[in-house]
Design a protein around this nucleic acid. Structure first.
Length: 298
DNA sequence: AGTAATCCCTGGCAGC
DNA sequence: TGCTGCCAGGGATTAC
């Protein structure tokens, strides 16, 4: 489940490899991943070169000369650079015990729904097992009005990420704080993993009604969010199953998680058993001691 | 308007 | 061993 850190790790990888390359050919194997007719997408992309790689929340933005490709990886999306010199290293295998993919280049297979060939023979491969991801083509001018970007909330690591608007977005909200963190209108880029991690670092029970958070709790959460995201980026992203970076390599943050996926294991801070509940139709992990329920908790 | 439930999609895995 | 059924979840859509 690529969240902000995983998308950022991919962005940095592609920044090193894809910039300056000109598109010679585009193939779409499954129309459902693109918006609009694939033929229009293909004809517009061919001839344009990659200018820059940016990101908004979980959306990767491939900036071309006239247009932008907005890539949302959904649950299992992978965007990898195809290096023609590594062709002998094609294919990929799973590690026998962890199930994680090794650093092997992703050749085109039945889950590769779109791929780009550059004039130099290198390329980009978009692969997505569950097909929740989407790719959209927009012109450079109208990219910020695109439905994929326009309604996103505060962007961590930017000047716009400030406490006052964060608190305003929590005010009066009756939903659980966990559900609100998953909502991209509040903070862009948080998913199930980093929401649980941020609530642990802030010491807040995920079931708390958002508007009931005290001022110190709001501040702790506001600071915990970029902290857990930065840690995820530094460790190369979280690879629980499908995430790989632009080179096809797994990340390292899955070894360092505080609560996510650690049901029944000892809390790294107090040794209490990590619990799992379902909140907003999502599995939610927390430490019952470090994240004491408030008076409104269930 | 805010909130909650439903659906999409496939691989992995437990259970028989 | 092969089959069945469940689980994972981001976000669009629908319902209330």
């Amino acid at each position: 489940m690529p969240e902000l850190p995983e998308v950022e790790v991919i962005r940095r990888g592609l920044e090193q490899t894809a910039i300056g390359r000109r598109i010679a050919r585009v193939e779409v194997a499954d129309d459902r991943v693109v918006s609009g007719p694939p033929e229009v997408l293909k004809s517009r992309l061919v001839g344009q070169s990659v200018q820059a790689l940016s990101r908004r929340g979980k959306v990767l933005i491939i900036e071309l000369e006239q247009d932008c490709l907005l890539v949302h990886l959904g649950m299992t999306g992978q965007l990898t650079f195809w290096d023609r010199k590594r062709e002998d290293d094609a294919g990929f295998v799973r590690h026998p015990s962890t199930g994680l993919q090794r650093a092997r280049q992703h050749a085109i297979d039945k889950h590769t729904h779109l791929w780009i060939r550059f004039e130099d023979g290198n390329g980009l491969h978009y692969r997505d097992i569950r097909k929740f991801g989407r790719i959209r083509l927009v012109s450079r001018e109208e990219r910020m009005c695109s439905p994929m970007l326009q309604s996103l909330g505060l962007e961590p690591f930017t000047e716009g990420y400030r406490l006052e608007p964060f608190e305003r977005l929590l005010a009066g909200r009756k939903r659980s704080i966990k559900a609100l963190l998953l909502d991209q209108h509040l903070v862009a880029g948080l998913g199930n993993i980093y929401s649980d991690e941020a609530l642990f670092v802030a010491g807040i029970d995920p079931r708390r009604v958002a508007s009931s958070l005290t001022r110190p709790e709001r501040l702790r959460l506001f600071e915990a969010i970029p902290a857990v995201l930065a840690r995820g980026i530094d460790l190369g992203g979280t690879s629980l199953r499908d995430f790989v970076n632009a080179r096809g390599e797994a990340g390292g943050n899955q070894e360092e998680l505080f609560v996510y996926g650690r049901t029944g294991q000892p809390c790294r801070r107090c040794q209490a058993s990590i619990e799992r509940i379902v909140l907003a139709q999502r599995s939610t992990h927390y430490c019952p001691v470090c994240q004491k329920a408030g008076i409104d908790g269930l």
